[in-house]
Design a protein around this nucleic acid. Structure first.
Lengths: 201, 201
DNA sequence: GTCTATACAACGATAGAC
DNA sequence: GTCTATCGTTGTATAGAC
């Protein structure tokens, strides 16, 4: 189109050390995977968003798959989340757990959860990551600290309620839960979740 | 049924009126969308599975989108499901509801649910269909028949628990829920679901 | 001078549209 | 059946850091 020379946007060759192409690709990949899922996101779009060439994906991550696993490292610190949930009365752990998830998901309108659902349903790799993350990093530690028995079953049950809430509220967007205040959601769901944590099954 | 050219699986030219190309395409589309999701399923594979030419998709449905909306009509009869759930003690409606969903999903290993999750997360159109299906065809009628108040909220809450169970058991495949017997699942979850149906919120 | 991060071009495959 | 667009990937020349 623009035949006029003179403004080449990206000169070739090694860039100054301060510009970190790898980090830019990771940021762009998180955004694109979040918005379009694994299949929908294209290597070219990610590279363009990062302001670099698509070949850099291969150079730094070996391909689209490598970029995906590198980018989907959970940004929030699970240990901090678990600590917040466990700090206080164990009989109110469910309420704190719910408020924590609601806050995290609400920050970006559930976009991250939508992307996660897409990736999990489309990619066995993502399903395995989700499996390990849920049981190992979040519900596992919480259940270990507050539950009397059947730790694995309780952790999985908590997963059903929390993930289901996320799907209905943020992905399906079914009213009135989609627009409900945090207090309303907590009042309705926390008692059930508390039974999974410490109640009799 | 003898064909003049016996060995040829698909003779050229217009087929006899009895063979319904449109229906064959719908069946094939349901199977492919179920196995691969919307983006993963290809028009060519669907047409091949139906034993017709890919151009028939355009002719009958105007394109891939039209075929999708036509194919995703729910195959099971919701009225029959609702009737089964409502037949009996309202205080055990949650158990019957759970057993119904477990039976439906177990018949194909959760493949339909996985495809649904993929489609819902990827397409606002599918999310809207899911919304209308959940509130209008399944939980809506059930809640209307057994719940004392807050019908819409109760329906959405039931959605969180049932859909969450499906995601954990069939999509994420988190143990021990993924391999648990129906009785085990029902014993753990039915009391919580029953609270959403008829309990105090 | 050497190394390497980078941009660019092109390839083979495959999709949906017509 | 053909066409066109676009995908992920690969090969290669180059510019700048070391």
């Amino acid at each position: 189109m623009a035949d006029k020379r003179g403004s080449r946007p990206h000169p070739r060759g090694r860039r100054p050390a301060g510009e970190n192409t790898r980090a830019a690709l990771l940021d762009a990949a998180r955004a694109e995977f979040t918005e379009r899922g694994f299949d929908g996101a294209t290597v070219r779009a990610i590279a363009q968003r990062a302001g670099v060439d698509a070949a850099m994906v291969n150079h730094w991550f070996g391909g689209k798959d490598g970029l995906f696993v590198a980018a989907m490292e959970i940004p929030v610190n699970p240990e901090e989340i678990v600590h917040r949930i466990l700090d206080g009365d164990p009989q109110q752990a469910a309420e704190r757990l719910l408020r924590t998830f609601l806050s995290v998901w609400d920050t970006n309108g559930g976009g991250a959860l939508t992307a996660l659902a897409r990736s999990v349903a489309s990619h066995e790799q993502a399903a395995q990551m989700m499996r390990e993350f849920l049981s190992g990093m979040v519900f596992g530690p919480v259940v270990s600290a507050v539950a009397p028995d059947q730790l694995e079953l309780r952790a999985a049950l908590c997963g059903t309620q929390v993930l289901g809430l996320g799907m209905i509220r943020y992905v399906i967007r079914l009213e009135p839960l989609a627009s409900a205040e945090h207090n309303t959601v907590v009042a309705a769901i926390a008692p059930n979740l508390q039974r999974y944590l410490t109640g009799v099954l």
